[in-house]
């Protein structure tokens, strides 16, 4: 629960961001209900809102959703779920639920499973309630620039990437991705500058140092 509340306020930001990027309240809420992975959702609406093609929006969202598949590998060993519960567990497999489950490691598997379900369900509820509030709020406000929503969106991405910049090498990779993306903006269609930076991840991930 202690994780679910701050995530909820972040859901408000997503709701506002969906509207600021030209999506309807219904579409914004569907993304939170069905996609349910913050980074992918922000990226999808951001790329599409900037005039990117549907394909680049989906590709960026999908690439950011890839890590959930890897979390799911770990969580499937832990949860040992069958039938319908497997499909529910899949939807709840995100940064927060996996993180809380892994943090309970020394307390044993029962505590880890409880951590996964409690966090997953808690975050699901608050994320969706606050998305709805944020979407309606932003719709009432009108011009996104007048309320600073245009800066809140990149700030949200910065907040998402910040905890991942754990060492000098990763920070350097982040800066290179920023430079490459900015240089590409005038040259290629919207959305492509974002996806192109995957090349940097491939090059630097290929070698360990």
């Amino acid at each position: 629960m202690s994780v679910a509340l701050p995530v909820g306020t972040y859901g408000t930001a997503f709701g506002a961001s969906g509207i600021a990027n030209g999506f309807t309240v219904l579409q914004t809420c569907l993304l939170s209900l069905l996609l349910f992975s913050g980074a992918s959702q922000f990226a999808f609406v951001g790329v599409m809102g900037a005039g990117g093609s549907a394909l680049s929006g989906i590709a960026t969202g999908g690439l950011l959703g890839f890590r959930n598949g890897l979390y799911a590998l770990r969580m499937s060993q832990l949860l040992q779920v069958r039938g319908i519960k497997k499909f529910i567990a899949a939807q709840l497999t995100i940064d927060e639920s996996t993180g809380v489950a892994l943090a309970q490691e020394e307390r044993g598997e029962a505590a880890m499973r409880y951590g996964f379900w409690a966090t997953g369900i808690g975050v699901y509820i608050s994320w969706n309630v606050f998305t709805l509030l944020g979407a309606y709020g932003a719709q009432a406000l009108g011009n996104p620039s007048a309320w600073g929503l245009d800066a809140a969106v990149p700030a949200a991405f910065l907040g998402l990437v910040w905890p991942r910049l754990i060492d000098k090498r990763t920070q350097l990779i982040a800066v290179m991705a920023m430079v490459l993306a900015v240089l590409l903006v005038p040259l290629v269609p919207a959305g492509v500058p974002i996806i192109a930076t995957v090349a940097i991840a491939l090059i630097f991930g290929w070698r360990s140092r």
Binding site: V47, L64, P154, F157, R164, A177, M178, V182, A201, G205
Partner: peptide
């Protein structure tokens, strides 16, 4: 390793493009 870096590059690129980009 590649999977750890993918969110780093995509999110960084999004910060930059959403800060400086205006259409093309």
């Amino acid at each position: 390793r590649i999977n750890t870096l993918i969110p780093v590059v995509l999110l960084s690129a999004l910060v930059a493009v959403q800060t400086f980009g205006s259409k093309s």
